[in-house]
């Protein structure tokens, strides 16, 4: 599912969060990089249809998200992991995923159970199926939140820092899973971990001060470094070379 943004802007009250963002995710896995406060989470909320673009044109899967009906529609098509996922702490992992499947419209209990079981298997949560969410570690909760987002195999996955707080083994597992999903669906993720981009992303955008200052391939980002082809150097070069608009200014 293709996402195209043309000159998209958003403000929280008088605070500017995004200014003139233009990009095209294509298919596969698309990464969003940028310092804290760059506008990554805001852009992901716009893509998930939970915010309305204040300016510009944002088209997701052919739906122009300026219209409320399109945003309602896209919320049915997207799997969304917010930056701080709040899961119901009193439910077990299985109960939570079963409830999520129900809210996604799966009325049949057996089908819901299969979906929840499949999601738990993919995220290595089978052993925690009967554990209360309140008792889980941060990384495990993050995996539950990812399982919640990918229930029902949505054609677009919008993930805000999906590997944050995970141990290396589970981070590897999640990356492998997302790469696999990226072969048939579009995955847009934000991250501070350049390994996520290096190992996962087909394309990447760098945001700073609410503006996309680079959009291209990870290889292209690496070659923007003055010497050599290292992604970290490329990212640093792009972020430090561009003078952003003063953050938070109206």
């Amino acid at each position: 599912m293709r996402v195209t943004a043309t000159d998209v802007g958003y403000r929280y009250g008088r605070t500017r969060a995004l200014t003139g963002v233009t990009l095209d995710t294509g298919g596969g896995v698309f990464g969003l990089l940028g310092p804290n406060g760059a506008g990554k989470s805001t852009l992901l909320r716009l893509l998930a249809g939970t915010l309305r673009p204040r300016s510009g044109r944002l088209v997701v899967g052919g739906h122009d998200l300026a219209r409320a009906s399109a945003r309602r529609g896209i919320r049915r098509l997207v799997g969304y992991l917010p930056e701080r996922p709040e899961l119901y702490p009193h439910l077990t992992v299985r109960e939570f995923l079963d409830y999520t499947a129900l809210l996604n419209g799966v009325v049949d209990a057996r089908q819901r159970s299969e979906l929840a079981g499949n999601a738990m298997e993919r995220l290595a949560l089978t052993l925690e199926a009967r554990t209360g969410i309140a008792a889980l570690s941060t990384g495990t909760r993050q995996r539950v939140a990812i399982a919640h987002a990918l229930l029902g195999e949505p054609p677009l996955l919008v993930l805000d820092e999906p590997t944050a707080g995970m141990d290396p083994m589970h981070r590897h597992r999640v990356r492998t899973l997302l790469a696999e999903i990226g072969r048939t669906a579009t995955v847009v993720l934000s991250t501070h971990d350049l390994d996520d981009v290096r190992l996962l992303c087909d394309r990447v955008a760098v945001l700073r001060g609410g503006t996309a200052i680079f959009v291209g391939s990870p290889g292209g980002l690496a070659t923007t470094a003055p010497h050599g082809a290292d992604l970290e150097d490329g990212y640093t070069a792009v972020v430090s070379a561009t003078t952003p608009p003063a953050p938070g200014q109206p």
Partner: peptide
């Protein structure tokens, strides 16, 4: 109305 529950079929 938590954010993670906003992108669902049932609003």
């Amino acid at each position: 109305r938590q954010e993670s529950m906003r992108a669902m079929l049932v609003p």
